[in-house]
Amino acid sequence: MYIIQPHYHGIARTAQDYERMAYAGVVAVAEPAFWAGFDRDYPETFLDYFKQISEFEPTRAALWGIQHYCWVAVNPKEAENIPLTEAVLKEMPKFFQAPTVLGVGEIGLHKSTPNECKTFAMQVDLALKHDQLILIHTPHLEDKLRGTVKILEILEQFDLDPKRVWIDHVEEHTAKMVLDRGYWAGMTLYPLTKCTGQRAADIIETYGTERLMVNSSADWGPSDPFTLQECVLECRMRGWGEQQLIEVFHNNPARFLGQCPKFKVRPIRVERA
């Protein structure tokens, strides 16, 4: 089995994660810019973070043959500070030139405040001006529906190609509205409180495999990158064919991320000898 882990916060994880992911079939990971667990005070702190995920983290992953890519952004959880965001955004285009940066993300909404909405729109605009892919975080738990609807409303204000936008953390009540508008949708698996591998498999069986991706986030909180492999096993035990597994867990991320020419992993087809 070949797997692309499209949403993984490597700097919060140990080297053993990479080693075991490599054992378990992961060939590439993509690391969106994330909240540090506290609100950063200085633009330079973001820039050093972008340097870490675009320069150093690929070297860690490469020790186990895993390709590491990343996204840069001001995460919605600290998007309330407009002057700080503006200062970071001014410097972000420099990172678009880096060989492993795929686009702007994860942006989006957390509490859907006016400042968050403004920051989100600013980052969408920046991405479009620089022809970058876009990765969008939707809120978790009771805020998810309202935040997702708001995100879709804001995106409507832009002249963009929905196939270059990935809206993440969809669940049963938000997947259809995202897919119906032509965006890519991601399901993020957690061991507690959020979507599970079984439910992700149900959502795929309901809506089909097109433009759907699965990831396990894996950050500094309670999380587990191998929830992704649990989902693969769940789908396999339900009788999915090998190619269907490859389509969802390898080829779909390769198709979306491959819209950025820097992403080198291509879709594959399984053939029996």
């Binding site: 495999t209 097109e210 035990m237 339900r238 999915w240 269907q244």
Partner: peptide
Amino acid sequence: MDSHPSLMNGDQVLDRY
């Protein structure tokens, strides 16, 4: 690409879950 992977039948779902 198959858009809808095959589902288990009802008995298989019960057996499994």
